[in-house]
């Protein structure tokens, strides 16, 4: 059930970029309810989307020129009905995209995604890069925290005035960056020792199930994308 949305969502995203926002909303909210992650989805999505959406609202609402219908004025700023419309559209679009992405993140464990990709013929090198990158982000954070602590223990100021903090930044960033990069050589050797260079098929220990319904809905969504594009161009959906 968790995996019911694996690849289907990728198509949703494409659709979401193109316009029919209500549709996307339905495609995000309903599967979320089914998968039982709606509260978490809303919380996370709100967190991610809020700054974006607010920014989008402000910029478009107040700074859309050529607005005919003036709603109100604050100093030099003119709020127009046209501006409001653009602003709301942008905000909804952002919400749709964020919602779809967050749902994807919440319902698809990285392991399943990677195994599924590999089973479908994606190179093990590519899946290595994906899973390693995702695990490296927190590793770099941990390392930064360690280096920060170490530098602080050596009397380096990472708090206080802005200038001091900036001066403190370099001794933190440099070892983290260089250390992570220098580790590449060792890890490459260690991977060679684990037979990664061998040609031929790899054994997969498991892969997520894929039902007929999932396959069908996936195709449906993929097909809907060119349809929407065509509809947009021919002026059908405005």
């Amino acid at each position: 059930m968790v995996l019911a949305t694996v690849t289907a969502l990728q198509a949703t995203l494409l659709g979401g970029l193109l316009g029919p926002l209500v549709l996307t909303g339905v495609l995000v909210i309903i599967p979320a309810v089914v998968a039982g992650v709606l509260p978490r989805l809303l919380r996370t999505a709100a967190l991610v989307a809020a700054p974006l959406a607010i920014s989008a609202l402000l910029v478009n609402f107040f700074f859309t020129p050529n607005g005919a219908t003036v709603l109100f004025q604050i100093g030099p700023i003119t709020a127009t009905a046209e501006g409001l419309r653009v602003a709301v559209e942008a905000a909804v679009r952002i919400a749709a995209i964020t919602g779809a992405l967050t749902l994807f993140y919440l319902t698809v464990p990285l392991g399943s995604l990677v195994v599924d990709l590999e089973r479908r013929g994606v190179s093990p090198n590519a899946t290595f890069v994906i899973s390693s990158a995702v695990r490296t982000v927190p590793a770099i954070l941990v390392r930064s925290a360690e280096v920060t602590d170490a530098q602080r223990a050596r009397g380096l100021d990472t708090e206080g005035s802005l200038r001091r903090r900036l001066r403190g930044l370099l001794p933190v960033i440099a070892p983290v960056l260089l250390g992570s990069i220098a580790e590449v050589e060792e890890r490459s050797l260690a991977l060679e020792a684990r037979a990664v260079a061998r040609r031929g098929t790899r054994t997969l220990l498991w892969w997520p199930a894929d039902s007929g319904l999932e396959r069908f809905s996936r195709w449906l969504m993929v097909l809907s994308v060119p349809l929407i594009i065509v509809a947009r161009i021919t002026g059908w959906l405005g």
Binding site: A133, T136, I140, L141, S180, V184
Partner: peptide, 19 residues
């Protein structure tokens, strides 16, 4: 262009970008 070292460097590079 995709030697083992590059494959191992890429995730580090991606993580640096993102962080």
């Amino acid at each position: 262009q995709f030697t083992r070292r590059v494959i191992v460097l890429m995730p580090v590079a991606i993580a640096i970008n993102i962080v």
